[in-house]
Amino acid sequence: PQECLLLEPGLNEIMANSLDYNERLWAWESWRSEVGKQLRPLYEEYVVLKNEMARANHYEDYGDYWRGDYEVNGVDGYDYSRGQLIEDVEHTFEEIKPLYEHLHAYVRAKLMNAYPSYISPIGCLPAHLLGDMWGRFWTNLYSLTVPFGQKPNIDVTDAMVDQAWDAQRIFKEAEKFFVSVGLPNMTQGFWENSMLTDPGNVQKAVCHPTAWDLGKGDFRILMCTKVTMDDFLTAHHEMGHIQYDMAYAAQPFLLRNGANEGFHEAVGEIMSLSAATPKHLKSIGLLSPDFQEDNETEINFLLKQALTIVGTLPFTYMLEKWRWMVFKGEIPKDQWMKKWWEMKREIVGVVEPVPHDETYCDPASLFHVSNDYSFIRYYTRTLYQFQFQEALCQAAKHEGPLHKCDISNSTEAGQKLFNMLRLGKSEPWTLALENVVGAKNMNVRPLLNYFEPLFTWLKDQNKNSFVGWSTDWSPYADQSIKVRISLKSALGDKAYEWNDNEMYLFRSSVAY
């Protein structure tokens, strides 16, 4: 590609939709070469300064400071330590791993069909083939991996386009969902002041979706909304933040926050679980009234959910574990990228498509890292959202599997949720969690119950496949010279610098 592309739109479109291996590689590498390399010296300084700040406030390091958001002291029976968070994340991840490994094996087999000769049947997945710029969410792999393609499509993007949905309609439908469970409408100022579409040439905007509580009843969302099912669900997520903000607005200023950061992320995700169900999509006209649910549509639905929800958990866990180790000084600065990709291979089963030396800073190419967000919130929120969903479905008197529950129109479920939201940070999160779900610790069981039918199906699908991955295989081993030459021509001086062995191999191949 010759034109100058922004991340959004532009590069993200390539990473969402392109099936051209080399075009995807160009976009993936260009973003890291342009952005990651510029941020490397800044990120090194950032780590030093943030650690100084944390230690001045009596924390061991900046990662310890972040984990302090979960700490509860002096509340008998509800205490929770920063170290306990690490333990809980690690042991819940071990419980999730078998499901993830089977999802990984299934996706690898489907990617082998889409990119023959580029995928190893026992290796890691190349990082640039996973549906977005970071491989964070695998949602866009659904069209390549759908188990029963002859069934009606449960990705309702086409239906939204056919019905001329726009950003306003998407957010109005999200608002209807919250109102149906007894939560309030958005304010008039929300509709007047939010930026729900890309302003285009009028001004440059950071398009990463964010929710804003500017105080004095001024709530806004910034999002360059596209007419897709993914953005339909994202709208519910962002509006969930606003509902939380509005619910605790009466609290004293210092207590106007989520019980912990994971709670804030979980609220909209609960609504997304219901909004994505075929039952709900039928009720708002995005699935045909004669759409029939059966075992095959159930597996299609659960796989689509797993690509988004299960596929991202190792990504989140590994990223934050790397940062915690960096802040603690356990990874020397001259080994940041080496350790990043070692951990990516070992924990996530994902491999870099071309080698990256220590001039890169791949983590900082992600919005949340370069903008100083702690990231473990996206792991804890996933466990909380299924715990909350299970409890709210019980309040809504849902009968049947958890993945079929739609809590819309249940004011009982809405009241149970609101009673927790309005507390803000005035009560320990362990107590707030217990008030809703009857337990005071994160628990992976509801998530595993939700995906149980899919897990059973995946194990059957993978019975003749290798489950797990070898960390030795690299996608650039066989194609390295071709890849390096093409990237050198595209990126010039910003391309990865060849070492002596690679230059010798190149000259030998040319001479041959």
Rank of each mutant, 00 (worst) to 15 (best):
residue 265 E to I: 08
residue 241 H to F: 03
residue 264 H to V: 10
residue 309 I to P: 01
residue 192 E to T: 08
residue 377 R to C: 02
residue 218 D to I: 15
residue 381 R to S: 06
residue 189 G to K: 15
residue 188 Q to E: 08
residue 269 E to K: 10
residue 373 Y to H: 10
residue 214 L to W: 13
residue 251 Q to P: 11
residue 137 F to G: 06
residue 368 H to N: 08
residue 230 D to C: 03
residue 208 H to A: 03
residue 256 R to Y: 06
residue 374 S to A: 07
residue 136 R to F: 06
residue 220 R to T: 13
residue 269 E to T: 05
residue 153 N to V: 06
residue 229 M to L: 06
residue 269 E to N: 04
residue 218 D to P: 12
residue 139 T to V: 02
residue 233 L to I: 05
residue 208 H to N: 09
residue 375 F to V: 08
residue 381 R to Q: 02
residue 234 T to H: 08
residue 216 K to L: 15
residue 214 L to P: 09
residue 269 E to Y: 06
residue 378 Y to C: 02
residue 213 D to M: 11
residue 375 F to W: 07
residue 367 F to S: 08
residue 218 D to Y: 14
residue 187 T to E: 00
residue 213 D to S: 09
residue 209 P to F: 12
residue 257 N to M: 05
residue 246 M to D: 12
residue 253 F to D: 13
residue 237 H to A: 04
residue 219 F to C: 14
residue 237 H to I: 06
residue 212 W to I: 12
residue 233 L to V: 09
residue 261 E to S: 07
residue 381 R to G: 00
residue 377 R to E: 05
residue 189 G to F: 14
residue 229 M to I: 11
residue 209 P to Q: 07
residue 219 F to K: 15
residue 269 E to P: 05
residue 188 Q to R: 09
residue 251 Q to Y: 13
residue 215 G to I: 13
residue 264 H to K: 10
residue 252 P to K: 12
residue 230 D to R: 04
residue 234 T to M: 06
residue 377 R to N: 07
residue 373 Y to R: 02
residue 301 F to D: 05
residue 219 F to R: 14
residue 375 F to T: 03
residue 140 N to L: 02
residue 381 R to L: 05
residue 229 M to V: 08
residue 367 F to K: 07
residue 257 N to L: 04
residue 367 F to P: 07
residue 261 E to P: 07
residue 381 R to N: 04
residue 208 H to F: 00
residue 215 G to L: 12
residue 372 D to M: 02
residue 215 G to Y: 01
residue 374 S to T: 09
residue 140 N to G: 03
residue 189 G to Q: 11
residue 368 H to A: 06
residue 246 M to W: 13
residue 304 K to D: 09
residue 372 D to F: 01
residue 214 L to K: 14
residue 256 R to Q: 03
residue 253 F to I: 14
residue 188 Q to Y: 06
residue 305 Q to I: 01
residue 245 D to S: 02
residue 367 F to Y: 09
residue 192 E to C: 08
residue 220 R to K: 14
residue 250 A to H: 03
residue 233 L to M: 05
residue 212 W to C: 13
residue 241 H to W: 08
residue 215 G to T: 01
residue 269 E to F: 08
residue 246 M to H: 13
residue 305 Q to Y: 02
residue 305 Q to C: 03
residue 264 H to M: 08
residue 265 E to K: 10
residue 237 H to Y: 10
residue 378 Y to I: 02
residue 308 T to G: 04
residue 188 Q to G: 04
residue 378 Y to M: 09
residue 233 L to T: 09
residue 213 D to K: 12
residue 253 F to Y: 13
residue 230 D to L: 04
residue 214 L to G: 12
residue 252 P to N: 03
residue 237 H to F: 09
residue 218 D to W: 14
residue 378 Y to R: 05
residue 212 W to T: 13
residue 245 D to E: 10
residue 253 F to V: 14
residue 249 A to I: 01
residue 377 R to G: 06
residue 375 F to H: 07
residue 245 D to Q: 07
residue 241 H to R: 05
residue 210 T to C: 08
residue 188 Q to F: 09
residue 245 D to Y: 06
residue 246 M to G: 13
residue 378 Y to K: 04
residue 368 H to T: 06
residue 234 T to Y: 07
residue 251 Q to M: 11
residue 305 Q to M: 01
residue 217 G to D: 15
residue 209 P to N: 08
residue 189 G to V: 13
residue 137 F to T: 09
residue 265 E to N: 06
residue 378 Y to E: 08
residue 206 V to P: 12
residue 250 A to D: 02
residue 304 K to N: 08
residue 373 Y to W: 04
residue 377 R to W: 08
residue 208 H to T: 02
residue 304 K to E: 10
residue 301 F to S: 08
residue 241 H to T: 00
residue 219 F to L: 12
residue 251 Q to D: 12
residue 252 P to L: 13
residue 245 D to F: 04
residue 213 D to R: 12
residue 217 G to Q: 15
residue 257 N to A: 03
residue 381 R to T: 06
residue 246 M to L: 12
residue 372 D to S: 03
residue 301 F to Y: 11
residue 245 D to R: 12
residue 216 K to M: 14
residue 192 E to V: 09
residue 367 F to N: 03
residue 261 E to I: 10
residue 209 P to E: 09
residue 301 F to G: 07
residue 375 F to Y: 10
residue 187 T to P: 00
residue 139 T to G: 04
residue 368 H to D: 07
residue 218 D to V: 15
residue 264 H to G: 05
residue 241 H to N: 07
residue 187 T to R: 14
residue 241 H to C: 01
residue 246 M to P: 01
residue 381 R to E: 05
residue 377 R to L: 08
residue 257 N to Q: 05
residue 210 T to Y: 08
residue 265 E to Q: 04
residue 220 R to F: 11
residue 372 D to I: 01
residue 245 D to H: 09
residue 249 A to Y: 14
residue 246 M to I: 11
residue 301 F to T: 04
residue 253 F to L: 14
residue 265 E to C: 05
residue 218 D to F: 14
residue 252 P to V: 10
residue 208 H to S: 08
residue 237 H to D: 03
residue 229 M to C: 08
residue 305 Q to W: 02
residue 234 T to F: 08
residue 301 F to H: 04
residue 217 G to C: 15
residue 246 M to A: 11
residue 210 T to E: 10
residue 272 S to V: 05
residue 193 N to R: 15
residue 213 D to E: 09
residue 237 H to C: 01
residue 377 R to I: 01
residue 215 G to K: 00
residue 137 F to L: 09
residue 381 R to A: 02
residue 256 R to I: 06
residue 136 R to Y: 02
residue 153 N to C: 07
residue 304 K to M: 03
residue 265 E to P: 06
residue 139 T to D: 03
residue 216 K to H: 15
residue 140 N to E: 08
residue 253 F to H: 13
residue 305 Q to A: 04
residue 304 K to W: 07
residue 237 H to V: 06
residue 215 G to V: 11
residue 189 G to P: 15
residue 208 H to W: 03
residue 237 H to M: 05
residue 137 F to M: 06
residue 372 D to P: 02
residue 213 D to W: 13
residue 256 R to D: 10
residue 193 N to Y: 00
residue 374 S to H: 01
residue 301 F to W: 03
residue 140 N to I: 01
residue 305 Q to E: 04
residue 214 L to V: 11
residue 217 G to N: 15
residue 153 N to H: 09
residue 249 A to T: 12
residue 153 N to F: 06
residue 217 G to L: 15
residue 305 Q to V: 02
residue 309 I to K: 03
residue 372 D to Y: 06
residue 265 E to D: 08
residue 372 D to L: 01
residue 230 D to V: 03
residue 139 T to P: 03
residue 250 A to W: 01
residue 367 F to G: 06
residue 257 N to S: 07
residue 188 Q to T: 03
residue 219 F to T: 13
residue 220 R to N: 13
residue 309 I to A: 03
residue 256 R to V: 09
residue 189 G to C: 15
residue 368 H to L: 07
residue 208 H to D: 07
residue 217 G to K: 15
residue 272 S to F: 06
residue 256 R to P: 05
residue 217 G to W: 15
residue 229 M to D: 06
